[in-house]
Design a protein around this nucleic acid. Structure first.
Length: 296
DNA sequence: CCAATCGCCTGCTGGC
DNA sequence: TGCCAGCAGGCGATTG
């Protein structure tokens, strides 16, 4: 369930280890980790070997490591992907898919391991293109160049160049339920099921409220809560329910203790003490307080 | 063009 | 005890 805060924790952990590092070798152990890469394992390994990584950048849930002004390793963790930092020769991780050996000019040799239980995540070599607004593509670099696989998604709500006017306009012309719209990465990126539920609970908005029916002040309140929830989760190291989400050193985050709605079916709403309900939605679940979050 | 659904995948849990 | 349905849910592709 890595969403924006979890991916940012991973990016921040990778940054000092990979910036300036030379890619000594690449070992693809499971081709399913390359579903977004065109060219196969041999091509992936050859394209990366001998290159030097210049940064670790993130927009929404996408993470990428540029190795020139034109190319980057794009990473998406999917549901259960992990990027782990290990010493060379470290034992194979459970669900290990790809191992990249680096030679850092200061820290020396280290391994970056991509492990992924459910194989929804992947790595790919992708081309970089200019950002339409000329601003930095994401957090972690000033370069205004974004991978083609990431170019179609919106900036995330924590991005200084996030276009609030565009966000409001998208909501105003979409009749779908607000939760569905929040999960649409082309509206605002980085929000998944957990933080959508938490933001809507904080803003006291029912998840099925039509987006276009939200008054301007409700939209502003919601965006404020989205940012507050993402910031707090990031400060607490992200949300870990099981061993699936961990930082680059394999450690869990603490935000699961701060959840008010998500996963709290039947437990009292922290605001009004009435039980949180769970409803089926888009092959997943919505958790909310039917008293604090009324559909009108 | 837009909205909604489907398929991908593994491991765990709960009911019988 | 074993078996299986259900659940976790991101994304892109496909359908309506």
């Amino acid at each position: 369930m890595p969403e924006l805060p979890e991916v940012e924790v991973v990016r921040a952990g990778l940054e000092p280890a990979v910036t300036g590092a030379l890619i000594a070798s690449v070992d693809v152990r499971d081709e399913r980790a390359l579903t977004r890469h065109t060219g196969g394992a041999a091509h992936f390994e050859a394209a990366l070997t001998g290159q030097r990584i210049s940064a670790a950048v993130r927009r929404g849930k996408f993470l990428w490591m540029p190795f020139s002004d034109d190319e980057a390793i794009v990473t998406h963790l999917g549901m259960s992907g992990q990027m782990l930092l290990r010493v060379p020769g470290a034992p194979e991780e459970r669900h290990e898919r790809i191992r990249i050996e680096l030679e850092h000019p200061v820290h020396g040799p280290l391994s970056v391991v991509f492990a992924d239980q459910r194989t929804f995540g992947s790595l790919a070599v992708d081309q970089l293109v200019d950002t339409p607004d000329g601003a930095a593509a994401g957090r972690g670099s000033n370069l205004a160049r974004v991978p083609t696989q990431v170019a179609h998604i919106a900036r995330d709500p924590l991005d200084p160049a996030f276009d609030v006017g565009r966000f409001r306009a998208r909501l105003a012309r979409t009749a779908s339920g607000i939760k569905r719209v929040l999960l649409d990465q082309t509206v605002a990126s980085g929000i998944g099921n957990i933080y959508a539920d938490e933001s809507l609970w904080a803003a006291r908005i029912h998840p099925e409220t039509s987006a276009s029916a939200l008054p301007t002040r409700a939209v502003n309140r919601l965006l404020g809560e989205v940012r507050a929830v993402l910031d707090k989760a990031l400060a607490e190291g992200g949300t870990s329910f099981d061993a699936q989400y961990v930082n680059v050193n394999g450690q869990a985050g603490y935000f699961a203790h701060s959840l008010n709605a998500y996963g709290r079916t039947g437990q009292p709403c922290p605001r009004c003490a009435r039980p949180i309900v769970r409803v089926s939605f888009m092959n997943r679940s919505s958790h909310f307080c039917p008293h604090c979050q009324r559909l009108r």
